[in-house]
């Protein structure tokens, strides 16, 4: 799904094309690579319906040692399972992820345009996270870069 302005084609937020660009942006982000050099733990980003978005959107972001190992769209909550470090998903058909970062679309918009810090979103009740908080608290710089990188991708909004 793409939107064209003149020569520039912008992918829709959280579409497959957008996720591929996001993966490239993450892998070219030296600040993220440095901040997350020790990090292992995959994420699911969940965008809850709201504003102009009439359905929930979820995506998987694979993350190891400062690099993004893969991205993909997720169609339902039964496709993944939140697991602890070194744990396996209960079924081979499920993705095991350590974290789910979730907010409604309006909050994501504020994060994407830089007017809301993703950590502040979490600590004001505008966003929520599932997963080991102690580990993610040790990686706040990496978490911020993870989300800030999304602002670097030219995006068509809903």
């Amino acid at each position: 799904m793409q939107f064209e302005i003149g020569w520039m084609i912008m992918p829709k937020f959280m579409s497959e094309e957008w996720l591929d660009l996001y993966k490239d942006a993450l892998n070219n982000n030296e600040a993220y690579a440095k901040a997350a050099s020790w990090w292992t733990g995959d994420f699911v980003f969940k965008v809850n319906a709201g504003g102009n978005l009439d359905h929930d959107v979820m995506s998987y972001i694979g993350l190891i040692h400062g690099k993004c190992t893969g991205v993909r769209l997720i169609s339902g909550e039964d496709e993944f399972e939140v697991i602890g470090p070194d744990e396996q998903a209960s079924s081979s058909e499920k993705l095991g992820v350590e974290y789910v970062y979730e907010a409604n679309y309006d909050t994501w918009l504020l994060i994407l345009n830089g007017s809301l810090d993703p950590v502040r979103a979490l600590l004001s009740g505008k966003a929520k996270i599932q997963g080991d908080m102690a580990k993610v608290l040790k990686a706040t710089d990496a978490a911020k870069e993870l989300v800030r990188t999304a602002t670097l991708v030219e995006t068509e909004l809903y």
Binding site: L109, L110, N113, S115, L116, L122, L123, S124, G125, K126, A127, K128, I129, D132, M133, A134, K135, L137
Partner: peptide, 26 residues
């Protein structure tokens, strides 16, 4: 977009849930 916070009951509940998770995980 200007961030106008209405600290509604849902946000309060989420914040409490998050803070509770922080304390127990720490």
């Amino acid at each position: 977009l200007i961030w106008v916070i209405a600290v509604d009951e849902v946000s309060q509940e989420i914040l409490f849930f998050t803070f509770n998770a922080v304390i127990s995980d720490v």
